[in-house]
Amino acid sequence: MQPFTQITGLVAPLNRVNVDTDQIIPKQFLKTIKRTGLREGLFFDWRRKKDGSPDPDFFLNQSRYESSTILLTRDNFGCGSSREHAPWALLDQGFRCVIAPSFADIFYNNCFQNGILPVVLKADEVLSVMKEVVGTEGYQLTVDLGNQTVTTPGGTAYRFDIDSFRKDCLYRGLDSIGLTLQHEAAITAYEQRRQQDAPWLFADVR
């Protein structure tokens, strides 16, 4: 996994609440057996008007947001299905960071598995940055995981919280399976204990 330390990048605004994973990447793109190539499915239905032509109002169709790496959005982003295709598609589009007042649990977890940093800022902070982004072409933010800050071009620094364990894994780009396998002895000891207490859980499911 690609580590995340600090990025400075163009910000794309998605001013909607409750953006669900069905919108981030609709089902027709879930038939793939790969993690890559999902960019064309990102916000597929919102990118087009009813007649199928690109909707110029949607941010991804505007050249000023083309190379953005930070997505700024509203409450409860990523709700709904557990599909990891959602962060894969965001990553494929070039996003390394999503900033919102709140995230749905599974999506939040899935980001960390893919080198994407989900940042929770207060709702009023998000709204004020959103205004600046829309009003200023070429607007960039600096997101610093080490210091847990988001800094605006004007120099305002917003602090965000993150679990230390998750932070460490993302910062160093660690392979989480590899980390868990280091505790192999503890897992085996647990299984032996558990087999005594609940032997019915160790029968084959065949």
Binding site: R83, E84, P87, Q113, I177, T180, L181, I187, E191
Partner: peptide, 16 residues
């Protein structure tokens, strides 16, 4: 869980 976690559980029978 997400797909990376599916892999994690397959490999380790555990989740973080």
């Amino acid at each position: 869980i997400g797909t990376s976690e599916v892999e994690h559980v397959l490999a380790t029978q555990c989740l973080v």
